[in-house]
């Protein structure tokens, strides 16, 4: 049972994030919602990458007596997560700077009032 808790957390985080994006009106809260979805996806990748009893994939620090990395963890999910975190930071910075400029032009952070482009 305990091993399913991260997956439940992932689903919960994705849904909380989507709820924030769809139903919250404040632009900052929408940005927070996207960040929560992103954290959920990152948690998912990290959970996938966990291997019980595995060792870090560093060839020079292998335990004595082992030759081929049988217990070594292939670090692909971790690499994916790192890349995704870096991209997430870029997206977050860009979104917040856009929100700042939008506040200057529109004078509000309400997404219902940010509707000059429609139809």
């Amino acid at each position: 049972m305990i091993e399913y808790i991260p997956y439940i957390a992932v689903v919960a985080m994705v849904f909380i994030g989507l709820y924030a994006v769809v139903f919250r009106r404040n632009l900052i809260k929408i940005v927070i919602g996207i960040t929560i979805i992103e954290s959920g996806v990152n948690l998912f990748l990290i959970t996938l990458g966990y291997r019980g009893g595995g060792i870090a994939p560093i060839y020079t620090s292998l335990p004595a007596g082992t030759t081929y990395p049988e217990e070594m963890v292939l670090p692909v999910p971790q690499a994916l997560t790192l890349t995704s975190i870096v991209i997430g930071v870029a997206v977050l910075a860009l979104m917040l700077s856009l929100v700042m400029h939008i506040y200057r032009k529109y004078g509000t952070l309400n997404v219902r009032k940010m509707r000059r482009l429609k139809e």
Partner: peptide
């Protein structure tokens, strides 16, 4: 302001 609005919408959707 409209260009910023379009950019924000695009970024939300695509991210």
């Amino acid at each position: 302001g409209e260009a910023l609005e379009a950019a924000f919408k695009y970024l939300v959707i695509s991210s």
